[in-house]
């Protein structure tokens, strides 16, 4: 491949094997020889049945977990330790419960040594950007699920990461809030086009958000089995784009591949 610019993030033949839980068990290989690349400014979704090792791959990309073999390249340079260029939006609630929304958003700046006055001002600005002006003093438990996700989004984006890793960030939200959040994410993303690696098990979400969808096989030993470029025009509205003919075509094509994997994972879980 001839390319002047290395991809923002490259996972090269990643294998992750976990030691056996009990003595008679076999070691468990979650991911085998998986390679995924995210170009600069590209929005890539990883989709696969539950338990296929999607989160494992994301943790490897974040540097939170070291792969058994394979390497992670950030803009061409091998990753050592935590991925300092990446922001991570977790599936579960990750806000600090004893800090107000504003202090949560400012946390990253505080860890980076920004003084109080400046970080409060910048956090206030981000609070407004995610539509939570006036909620700065609330503690996480006083916010709704959607509001907590917005705080988490601001908390990550305030550090201006080059790469954003997202692990099914909206899976716990109700359908309406979810569409709102997806649209807001697209709007925030389109303003400065960061590289995004987005994990989901929801095909509609994957297609409506991404430039490219990568399908993972059912675990164990999961890996990419197909890639689809999403050529829908931007800017998109996630609920409108779902009615278009091209969307349905793409959906049918990807689902053909994904369906077999979902069934496999279903059968495996039944017999487990």
């Amino acid at each position: 491949m001839v390319r002047s610019e290395p991809p923002a993030l490259a996972l090269e033949s990643i294998t992750c094997t976990f030691p056996a839980a009990a003595r008679d068990d076999q070691p468990y290989t979650a991911v085998r020889e998986a390679s995924v690349r995210v170009g600069k400014g590209e929005f890539v979704s990883l989709i696969g049945p539950t338990g296929c090792g999607k989160s494992t791959l994301l943790n490897v990309a974040a540097g939170l977990m070291a792969p058994t073999s394979g390497s992670v390249l950030v803009e061409g340079a091998p990753l050592r330790g935590l991925n300092r260029d990446a922001g991570y939006l977790f599936q579960a609630d990750a806000l600090i419960p004893w800090r107000s929304a504003l202090d949560n958003i400012a946390a990253g700046l505080q860890f980076h040594g920004v003084d109080r006055a400046e970080r409060t001002e910048r956090a206030q600005h981000w609070l407004e950007r995610v539509g939570l002006a006036g909620f700065g003093n609330r503690y996480p438990h006083q916010l709704s699920g959607g509001m907590r996700k917005r705080v988490a989004l601001a908390q990550t984006l305030i550090l201006d990461p080059k790469i954003i890793l997202m692990d099914e960030p909206f899976s716990a939200l109700d359908a309406q809030t979810r569409e709102l959040m997806e649209n807001e994410l697209l709007e925030l993303w389109s303003s400065d086009r960061k590289s995004v690696l987005f994990i989901t098990h929801d095909l509609e979400e994957a297609i409506s958000l991404s430039d490219r969808v990568v399908v993972l096989s059912a675990g164990p030993a999961a890996g990419p089995i197909g890639e689809f470029a999403i050529d829908l025009a931007r800017p998109r509205d996630v609920s409108e784009v779902r009615m278009t003919k091209r969307f349905l075509e793409l959906h049918r094509k990807i689902w053909e591949l994904l369906k077999a994997e979902v069934l496999k994972s279903h059968v495996r879980q039944k017999h487990a």
Binding site: L82, A94, I96
Partner: peptide, 25 residues
């Protein structure tokens, strides 16, 4: 919560930050 810890680390917290801003509170 391990998620809160991982999140703080991804936000740039050093071991000392974790002690002061996560473990101690």
């Amino acid at each position: 919560s391990p998620v809160v810890l991982s999140n703080a680390r991804m936000l740039g917290a050093t071991r000392r930050d974790l002690l002061r801003h996560i473990y101690l509170p």
